[in-house]
Design a protein around this nucleic acid. Structure first.
Lengths: 250, 250
DNA sequence: ACCAATAACATTGTATACAATAACACATTT
DNA sequence: AAATGTGTTATTGTATACAATGTTATTGGT
């Protein structure tokens, strides 16, 4: 069903079927941002597969806005690396190379180490409570084996890392992390080997525990191990079927 | 000719006086990007001071493009943090807070450490030669005490850090560094205390030397010291004259 | 003279029209 | 039949028109 049809019925139409978030009040603040957010969710959830074309007219008509707005939303996603736009050709969901995937995780190892350090200094009791709450959510999704739950799982497990960035209190690093998490999700969706969660909540739990015990070194070690684990779960060999897939992307 | 200014003579017009780069061939590739680049240079050079208004119509008329293009260029700069745009108000050259400045340097300490590590692994003989060339350029600018040279100096000393990012071979970290360098230049222009160069090429030379000697630890130590030195040269106390300046920004 | 309400203006937000480019199909030629 | 050229169509690039919003000036009242 989510398979993209050949001629006229684009994969993009599928996302209309998903419930749209608060459309009434928040949207008028910046409609392009709202559209960007929905599209990003769709990309990260793999409802839009890499290589899928995002035509300005189609995006616009799906959200009942002009091409101007759609174009703006696509431009934002291009800045984040989730969308690749080619002049006079259009915008496509990015199809990151294995090399790019490795760079993403290298960057994460570096930045998340720093974030962890700052976060450790700032974590309050309420923060720890919020994290425990979050881990519960992860655990629930892990038990559910539905396809929808799996997609949610990727996003929610990213939230753990984003929460750390939030607590760290550095807006710039947080912004970097948001980009990295988005791209990671795309890469995981692309190259993920196992069906099992690539971002074990066990790892998250261990990191949290180490933080709570005040053992930053241990937390850092576990974080690095965790990221390595995610990366190791990818199949980054020179893809074969992908080039084929790319050929019929349009 | 492209001047449309009737009443007030905005600061923005000044940038027309600076020679525009290759307009004939590269520009048609993406005009918005070309405009973004010139504006970024102007901001980083402090030819456009923080708080200055960048009206879409004015930018457009200065470059003889429609507001559509001007708007796109401004949006890009907003993503980089050099411009702050407020809905229904317009775009302004960012006026980063002292707290934001600290976060920028914290981020740099983290990311440049990682970049240095990767760069050390990749540095070739040609790379070292290129760096030495670059340091010569820095030294020349240091001797020249003109106002123009000082502005160039900020940009060129940033190039050293960007070259390291380039050699490191991680496109994502490089992109992050580009943003950080741009924001640093803005912050330095804003809060710089001394008239003397805030980014001593002596520091750069030391780092290069340590790299050439294969002493990564030493290079890292010097890099951190270097960044600390830049930050220490700022006056990040709660600004007083700035709020006044902000008041008459428009 | 001061304040409030309102009108005039300027600027941004959005939609749409037109131009430029690329993709495709078909026809013509060899 | 293959290849190349041409015309058609679809999509993006850009400019502009109009709507919505914010700002400022003016006018009326106290």
């Amino acid at each position: 069903m989510p398979l993209k049809a050949p001629a006229d019925f684009s994969e993009l139409n599928e996302i209309m079927k998903t419930p749209r978030q608060t459309d009434s009040d928040a949207s008028h603040e910046d409609r392009a941002k709202a559209i960007r957010d929905t599209l990003r969710d769709a990309i990260v959830d793999r409802r839009l597969s890499p290589g899928a074309k995002l035509s300005e007219a189609e995006v616009g008509s799906l959200y009942s806005v002009s091409r101007t707005i759609a174009r703006s939303a696509l431009q934002m996603l291009a800045f984040e690396g989730l969308v690749t736009s080619e002049r006079n050709k259009g915008a496509f969901v990015s199809n990151p190379s294995p090399e790019e995937a490795r760079q993403i995780f290298t960057s994460r190892r570096l930045i998340e180490t720093g974030i962890l350090q700052s976060a450790a200094e700032n974590m309050s009791a309420e923060d720890f409570a919020a994290f425990r709450e979050q881990l519960k959510k992860e655990a629930l999704l892990k038990e559910d084996h539905g396809a929808k739950a799996r997609r949610e799982e990727i996003k929610v497990s990213g939230d753990f890392h984003l929460m750390l960035a939030e607590v760290a209190g550095n807006a710039i690093l947080k912004k970097f992390m948001e980009e990295l998490i988005g791209r990671s999700s795309l890469v995981i969706a692309l190259y993920g080997k196992t069906g099992t969660s690539s971002c074990g909540s066990d790892d998250h739990f261990g990191i949290l525990e180490a933080l709570e015990a005040g053992n930053l070194d241990q937390a850092t070690k576990m974080m690095l191990h965790h990221i390595n684990h995610i990366e190791a779960d990818l199949d980054l060999r020179p893809q074969s079927s992908l080039s084929l897939k790319d050929a019929l992307q349009l």
